[in-house]
Amino acid sequence: MKKNIGKLLSLTFTISILLLVVFVTTKNDATLVDEIEFNNVDFENIQYANIASNVKAFNRTAFTPKLGKTFTGFKEALGFKESQNDYFRVNQFGYLGKYQFGKSTLKVLGIHHPQYFLSNPELQEKAFIANAQRNKWVLRKDIKRFNNKYIKGVKVTESGILAAAHLAGPGSVKKFLRSYGEQGFADANGATIKYYMKKFSGYDTSLIKPLKKVKVKYESA
């Protein structure tokens, strides 16, 4: 019995020694592999890879200014609807620029050089403001009368009225309001006064001051 116990203890000790040797060897090999891999790392490429990854992440969440319901938000949203904010666009009906002005409206504003207008973003912004001022003057009584009321299920607001006037002209908007939506309007693309009133509702257009006669001053090339 004692002899068997001795053999068992001897075998256990031998196995323990073998396991220890395997463990130390494996650990040393792993350390060696780590050192080899570490020494062969291309840190420069990793750096640029990280930058590229960050750029891709930035592009996926590209910065967009939150303009909200400000006046800038109003004109940028309207410009996007008209032309995707493309100052140099001319549509199939000859409407020009970011806000898709017709030549007849430009003449009313004192702009008689359509090609120069198309090439001049600053002039286009001035024309937008001037046209909004003129429309607000023409529709001032209707803005006061119908603001915050509902027509055809759409809440009427000043910004919605001005956007609709940009689309259809102040005369058509006046008819729409005073007929409580019975006299409508649709442009060649099917856009309606009702749609524009709803889409551009609730923006702050208080910066636009109503002016009866407004001309855009500019010097053509």
Rank of each mutant, 00 (worst) to 15 (best):
residue 58 F to Y: 15
residue 106 L to Y: 04
residue 110 G to K: 09
residue 149 K to D: 05
residue 61 T to D: 14
residue 215 K to Y: 09
residue 135 N to F: 00
residue 126 K to D: 04
residue 98 K to M: 13
residue 139 L to Q: 10
residue 7 K to S: 11
residue 114 P to M: 04
residue 73 G to E: 09
residue 80 F to I: 08
residue 7 K to C: 02
residue 94 G to N: 02
residue 221 A to M: 10
residue 83 S to F: 08
residue 3 K to T: 00
residue 49 A to Y: 08
residue 158 E to N: 12
residue 120 N to V: 04
residue 135 N to V: 03
residue 205 T to Y: 06
residue 41 V to D: 10
residue 193 I to C: 00
residue 208 I to F: 05
residue 125 E to M: 10
residue 207 L to K: 15
residue 116 Y to F: 15
residue 47 Q to E: 13
residue 10 S to P: 00
residue 77 A to P: 02
residue 200 F to D: 07
residue 92 Q to I: 06
residue 111 I to S: 02
residue 86 D to C: 07
residue 151 I to G: 03
residue 38 F to H: 15
residue 155 K to L: 04
residue 73 G to I: 04
residue 95 Y to G: 03
residue 210 P to W: 01
residue 12 T to C: 13
residue 184 G to A: 04
residue 169 G to S: 08
residue 156 V to T: 09
residue 196 Y to T: 02
residue 37 E to V: 14
residue 8 L to T: 12
residue 178 R to G: 03
residue 28 N to Y: 10
residue 118 L to R: 06
residue 1 M to L: 07
residue 57 A to F: 14
residue 11 L to K: 11
residue 102 G to T: 06
residue 120 N to F: 07
residue 159 S to Y: 06
residue 132 A to V: 01
residue 55 V to R: 10
residue 36 I to G: 13
residue 48 Y to G: 00
residue 90 V to A: 10
residue 179 S to Y: 07
residue 207 L to N: 14
residue 169 G to N: 07
residue 53 S to G: 15
residue 95 Y to P: 01
residue 23 F to K: 14
residue 34 D to N: 15
residue 68 G to W: 10
residue 144 K to Y: 11
residue 157 T to Y: 04
residue 189 N to S: 13
residue 82 E to N: 12
residue 11 L to A: 14
residue 125 E to P: 02
residue 153 G to D: 04
residue 169 G to E: 05
residue 170 P to Y: 06
residue 120 N to A: 05
residue 65 P to W: 10
residue 24 V to M: 11
residue 86 D to N: 15
residue 84 Q to D: 08
residue 101 F to C: 05
residue 158 E to Q: 14
residue 82 E to C: 03
residue 206 S to E: 13
residue 123 L to Q: 11
residue 95 Y to W: 07
residue 52 A to P: 00
residue 103 K to H: 12
residue 81 K to R: 13
residue 117 F to L: 03
residue 62 A to W: 12
residue 105 T to L: 10
residue 158 E to S: 11
residue 48 Y to K: 05
residue 188 A to T: 07
residue 219 E to I: 10
residue 213 K to N: 05
residue 124 Q to Y: 08
residue 33 V to A: 15
residue 68 G to H: 12
residue 128 F to D: 02
residue 200 F to R: 03
residue 39 N to T: 12
residue 163 A to V: 01
residue 140 R to M: 07
residue 132 A to E: 07
residue 117 F to G: 05
